[in-house]
Amino acid sequence: MIVRIMGEGQVRLAESHLADLNKLDDELLAEMENGDGPGFRRTLQALLIRVRELGQPLPDDSLEPSELILPSPDATLEEVRDLLSDDGLIPG
């Protein structure tokens, strides 16, 4: 699957990693619901780091359809809230 990190680019990520990423996504969702700004920031960074570690970066000149779009590292709680679906940022 192709994942875009807004403002950074795209990575190819095996769907087998979604369960691992969903744990961080669930934490992020809970922190947003509780208004935990510092926790939200920490978990968003951890989620993006994990996606970068697990994914293979696509070339900068490659533009493939993204199956998943994640916020930029400096996104605000409100900006991320606008991106959320009922499942959080990561489906499943």
Rank of each mutant, 00 (worst) to 15 (best):
G9M: 00
P59W: 10
E79W: 08
I69V: 15
S85V: 07
Q56D: 13
T43H: 10
T76A: 06
G55I: 07
L44A: 04
Q56V: 15
D26V: 13
E8K: 07
D26Y: 02
F40P: 00
I5G: 01
V51F: 07
V3C: 05
V11H: 06
V80G: 01
R4M: 06
V51M: 02
Q56S: 15
A46M: 09
E67D: 14
I2G: 04
I69Y: 09
F40H: 01
K23I: 13
Q45W: 10
R41I: 08
L63N: 15
L68H: 01
N22L: 12
E78L: 11
L89Q: 02
L28K: 07
E78F: 05
R50H: 11
M6P: 00
R81Q: 14
L44M: 09
L54E: 04
E31L: 10
D60S: 14
T43F: 06
L47K: 03
G7R: 04
V11S: 00
I90V: 12
E27S: 14
D25C: 09
A75I: 01
I90Q: 05
H17D: 12
K23A: 11
L24I: 02
I2C: 02
H17I: 02
A75R: 02
E67P: 08
L13D: 03
S72K: 12
V3M: 01
Q45E: 14
G35A: 03
G92I: 07
L18Y: 10
L13S: 07
D74M: 10
Q10G: 02
D20W: 09
K23E: 14
A75Y: 07
L63Q: 15
A19Y: 00
S62N: 10
A14S: 12
L18D: 03
L48C: 04
A19I: 11
P65I: 04
L44R: 09
D25E: 02
D60A: 15
S16T: 11
L28H: 05
D74F: 10
S72L: 00
R4W: 00
G55A: 08
P57S: 09
A46L: 11
L68R: 05
D20S: 13
I90G: 08
I90S: 02
E27P: 00
D82T: 13
